[in-house]
Design a protein around this nucleic acid. Structure first.
Lengths: 341, 341
DNA sequence: TTGTAAGCGTTATCAG
DNA sequence: CTGATAACGCTTACAA
């Protein structure tokens, strides 16, 4: 016997198709007694809705936008690739997404982009933007307009976003710390570099990193963060200087973007062989450095999961269906040369 | 304007629905000229088939079986859980699977189970069994009967299985080796334990582990493998003995099942604090040991991916559709206490 | 509060 | 070789 359908339920419960549908979709206008009858039939026959058929009949088109930093970032590049790939798969059934690039450091431009969305033509947005009061306010306006809003990779915890899709960055920092501590060994100094501590993810990673280093590896000392502010030359200079001035330097932890210039500086310094380097995000640059034994470990998140999760959550939000948090929890991946994907 | 449908194509090409369908699905009995007309229309309108509708109309039911070791294994338990979970999701659309338990050490029973499958009532099987000539032969018979056969977690490379779903176990061993070498530090001895080296995955892991240890950490020496053969008491005894007799013991690498009894032995020995323990597969036991700092790292594979991948591949095989290897490559996950899922 | 009937985009069955 | 036409399981006007 094959799977029961709505027809079977209708027959079993002695009601019509429409009533079955109303009960199944919790639509109003059905007597409690009838609801019970239908639910009993559902339970008795073990009915489970055919999602394909439902979607087909429903004819819904979800329209989403992804707001991502533009400019040359390998991470957002891989994100865009993943988006395109997902777009061709089943999960992107009946959704159309457009990608909007924004200049990360221009809060006004970001707000302008967010507010330019027409709530009539857009059901939801996934945004990856730095945290500023203006942005939080823009999120507020989007929510007021009835849009679903999720944050991607970097959260806006005090905004009204519906959901955060990304890793726990404190835990990611802790993971990096644990590896750094064990790899460095007995003692030494560790340099921490990032693009900017203004971005929430960097801040949280630093927090986790410091906690583990202080707790588990007290004999390794962590230097203050070096911020590059998108200025790769400046970053290279500072790194070179630190290496010269710090003979006890044993490790470098790169918390975010700018791995290319960091690696350039390290290569030029000639100290790479003696340093444990740990970075974030698998990109062509970090991959190659891993293969060449220049980086010891990369902490990363699967961007494929990221976009699929965002899409799923946005859809659930639009249909106000429940979200299965367990499924949307993005894992923190540790990549060594040996387990490169 | 919304997405073009087969109707639009039919109109555009000036043919009927049925003909469009024949062309789209490469069915025989259409004049070349008509094919060309239809394909032109498809290209012109940018048609892309609606998978939901197709599945709905096709009404195909895939029947698969998963052949898994029975007996108390936490890994197969999580596998079964993942199977049930996937079963409720979209990926399992129109597939029904049954799980068949087999006694790992009884080659005849395994063969009997495999040959009991009725090719008329079953489209494909995913099997996780040890490699023996009899099993290879049984796979041959299944293939002859027209079934799709994939190996799960542990491969049968010299059989006629269609596909292997699982991690590269040599690489997994290498990953464990790299972590072990770095965590152990300067020097010492490392004990390797497994259930049985007769299983291909253990063998391959050992291979990778040894290669990295010998190459990158020549001052750490790796002891011969201890095999437990499902006898947990025996294993506990041997481990305790090794710990007593080997004062330089610095690490233990557990390549497969039996983590519970291994940990029991180590706890009883009192040497756990001074040992680096690396194990495979996240299970309740290894998870707890990670939290308690008893295990330093766990190499694992996402069982959810494993079963979803198996299902996808089996389906593709049945429809002889192409398989996207990149999507089916299972990643080797490294789990520390800090990035526990 | 409930029921009827017409789709949604494909595929499949029969005639022609 | 090609074309009508009826499913597939579910949703949704519209009617009762």
């Amino acid at each position: 016997m094959s799977r029961p359908t709505v027809h079977d339920i209708a027959k079993e419960a002695g009601v019509s198709l429409a009533t079955v549908d109303r009960v199944l979709n919790a639509r109003p206008g059905v007597r409690d007694k009838t609801i019970a009858k239908v639910q009993a039939a559902v339970a008795r026959l073990g009915y489970v809705r055919d999602a394909s058929a439902a979607n087909l009949a429903r004819q819904r088109q979800y329209k989403f936008a992804f707001v991502l930093p533009d400019g040359p970032s390998q991470f957002t590049d891989t994100l865009k690739v993943a988006l395109r790939e997902t777009y061709a798969s089943q999960i992107a059934d009946r959704v159309s997404v457009k990608v909007v690039g924004i200049p990360t450091h221009d809060a006004h431009a970001i707000v302008r982009a967010l507010l330019s969305f027409d709530p009539k033509r857009l059901d939801g947005v996934a945004i990856m933007v730095p945290e500023t009061p203006q942005v939080r306010d823009a999120v507020h306006r989007l929510k007021d307009a009835g849009m679903a809003v999720v944050t991607l990779a970097s959260d806006l915890p005090n905004s009204e976003r519906d959901y955060f899709i990304g890793i726990n960055n404190v835990a990611a920092g802790k993971t990096a710390g644990q590896l750094m501590g064990r790899f460095v060994g007995a003692q030494g100094e560790v340099l921490v570099v990032t693009n900017s501590l203004r971005s929430r993810d960097s801040l949280e990673r630093r927090l986790g990193f410091d906690e583990v280093m202080a707790g588990d590896f007290p004999r390794v000392s962590v230097l203050p963060s070096v911020e590059s502010y998108d200025d790769s030359l400046r970053m290279e200079e500072i790194v070179l200087e630190v290496i010269m001035r710090r003979p006890r330097l044993a490790g470098v932890y790169s918390m975010g973007f700018g791995n290319r210039s960091l690696l350039n500086a390290l290569r030029r310094s000639g100290a790479l062989d003696d340093l444990i380097v740990i970075a974030h995000e698998i990109t062509p640059v970090t991959k190659q450095a891993l293969v060449q034994n220049e980086i010891s470990a990369v902490i990363t998140q699967n961007v494929g999961h990221l976009v699929r999760s965002a899409l799923r959550v946005l859809r659930s939000l639009c249909d106000d269906m429940p979200i299965f948090d367990a499924q949307e929890r993005i894992r923190i991946d540790v990549v060594l040369r040996e387990n490169l994907p």
